[in-house]
Amino acid sequence: MKKFQLGEFEEVVMLTVAILYDNAYGVSIKKEIETRLNRKVSVGALQSALKRLEDKSYLKSHDGEATQERAGRPKRFFKITALGKEAMEYTRSTRNSLWDAIPGISLDVKFSLDRII
């Protein structure tokens, strides 16, 4: 059984939230992912992922001040929890251990191409 459930998109969101640190709310996270990873993110997918992560207690949120430009709607800022950090580290370490376990030869593309040709 897996210790921490963290999907690919969820991981991206967590990392982005960590990057943005103090300014991680819906629009900023969306833009950050779009510029850094060059992929489209819909508000729905993002909000749904944030909700999931919050339900898993990897993120916590607090509402900011209501501002004029958002027609009086507050921003909801997200922060990574201790559990969230653990989950990210776990994901990273498992991934690393997998990388480490690969014998060098299997990724030597040139070598395998030679064999085929």
Partner: peptide
């Protein structure tokens, strides 16, 4: 509320 805010922004 926050979603609506995001959308308006």
């Amino acid at each position: 509320d926050p979603i609506e805010g995001d959308l308006i922004e």
